[in-house]
Simulated scan of single mutants.
Amino acid sequence: MKFSKINAWLHLWLGLISGIIVFIVSITGCILVFEHDLKDLLYPYRKAAITNNGAMLPPSALISAAEKAMGGLPARSIEYRLPGKTTQVNFQSDSIVYVNPYTAEVAAVVDHEDFFHEVEEGHVHLWLPRKIGSRIVVYATLIFTVLLITGIVLWWPPKWNRHNIRNAFTILWKGKFKRVNYDLHNVLGFYTLPVALIIAYSGLYMGFGWLSRSVYTVASGGKSMPAYYEPPSDTTTAAAGPKWVVLDGIWRQCVNELADKKSPAVLIGMPPGKEASVYAYTNMEGAYYQAHYFDQYTGKKLQGGGVDVMPFREANGGDKLRRLNYSLHVGSIWGIPGKILFFFGSLVAASLPVTGFYIWWGKKKKKKKPALNRQKQTV
């Protein structure tokens, strides 16, 4: 059997097998590209008028207000966002509390399982049990990658003459529906190939540990991916400082000293036990986040382990690729233009199983007609 026939056979049957999954994952991906932008647009409680000369209140004031709204339930983490946006306080519950960072007024108590949460559940594991659904999604993504490769082989013109070039790069909008459908599958599939490959690669990177480790080794010049390590707090200094004074000091240190751009976008996690450390992430509004660990009793900075503990500018290639992967997956690494590009890339990816199925169905019906005509002639 010729290579071209094997390639076409693979493209057809792998597409039929994975089509529905690719459609679900791609169409939910379109929405998630603009998740935070849409939330800020649709949910007024995510915005806060800048007062107090733009000075944000410390965690002690905001967490106290949030815990009071939750009936005394202890907070798990607090996330300061950009100026003009409310601070998010998370709990071991279904609720999230949004607090005005300038006045400590509670803006809203909301259920975290909103529309976007349900969309994410479908994108990550198809609304199935996470362990089962996530495996199906990652293997469907692998099949989709093979489809992209076999698709470009099918698209490639046998001869680069004017007629073939026009057919390969343009959609004949004046043609019949069958022809337009074919061009939508063939031409749009080609134009969005780079974006689709980046989305597929970054998804596989998150889904396959062997792939992320291999890429890390190559990008870092032969190093192994470092293990995550959260250093413990020194319990012998438990009386060194009051809880809130220490936490407020950690927040000020993050904003004023540790953030590359003096960014207020900081996530701070409460220690789950007496020996645990306080973790914090700075530069949370972009792709260049960094993890920090602190003694919960003294506020002393501790040395953790992992790919995200070094300042981004000092990290090796493997660390940088690991930290950039999510931003690469949704296109936010290039700002709004990147998001728009990835939105349309995901939309086209969602359309490919639909247009591809119609092409196959049309060929199937075409084959049946001659068989029926032959039967009529023999009667």
Rank of each mutant, 00 (worst) to 15 (best):
W334F: 13
S134N: 11
Q296D: 13
Y228W: 14
N90Y: 09
V138S: 07
V255H: 02
G249W: 05
V110T: 13
T141V: 11
D319C: 09
T51A: 12
H117D: 13
T170V: 09
R162V: 09
G273Q: 13
A265D: 09
P44N: 06
K243C: 03
A8D: 10
G72A: 12
T103S: 06
L82D: 07
W173V: 15
K274W: 03
I143E: 04
L324H: 04
R213H: 13
E314P: 03
V246R: 00
K159M: 03
G203H: 07
E314R: 06
Y326F: 12
V330S: 04
A48L: 06
K5G: 06
Y191W: 13
F91A: 03
S64W: 04
V99Q: 02
K274F: 05
A287L: 01
K320R: 15
I171A: 05
T170R: 05
F144I: 01
K5A: 15
C254Q: 11
T217R: 07
N52M: 00
C254D: 09
K369A: 11
N325M: 10
M225F: 11
V124S: 03
V25S: 00
P83C: 02
Y288D: 13
T236M: 06
H185S: 05
N256P: 05
L324D: 07
W251F: 08
R46W: 11
S233A: 09
V379D: 09
P59G: 02
I50P: 08
W360F: 10
S277N: 02
F312G: 06
Y288R: 08
G209D: 14
I199M: 00
D308L: 03
D295M: 06
G331V: 08
R252P: 04
T235D: 14
H292Y: 10
L148V: 10
F177M: 05
G207W: 11
P311L: 01
G203N: 07
F115M: 11
G304W: 05
K223M: 14
R322Y: 14
G221Y: 10
N181V: 11
A104W: 01
H123S: 12
T150E: 00
S95H: 04
F116M: 02
L38N: 07
D183V: 11
A291T: 15
I78P: 03
A196M: 02
R313P: 00
L154H: 08
K176S: 13
P272M: 03
Q303M: 06
I50W: 08
A280F: 07
R76F: 11
I17V: 14
Y297L: 07
V110L: 00
V307A: 07
T51E: 12
M1P: 09
N53R: 13
V89E: 01
Q296P: 12
L42P: 10
G203S: 08
K363N: 08
S202D: 05
G133A: 07
A196F: 01
W173A: 08
P337M: 05
T217L: 04
G304H: 14
A75E: 04
L82Q: 07
A371I: 11
P44C: 04
T298M: 02
D37A: 06
K131V: 15
I21F: 12
A66T: 09
Y297A: 06
F23I: 01
I17D: 03
I250S: 04
I50S: 08
N52V: 07
L184P: 02
I136Y: 03
P74M: 04
I6Q: 04
V137L: 00
D234A: 12
T51C: 04
Y45C: 00
S212W: 14
V266I: 15
P83A: 01
I199V: 13
N164Y: 10
T86Y: 00
F344K: 06
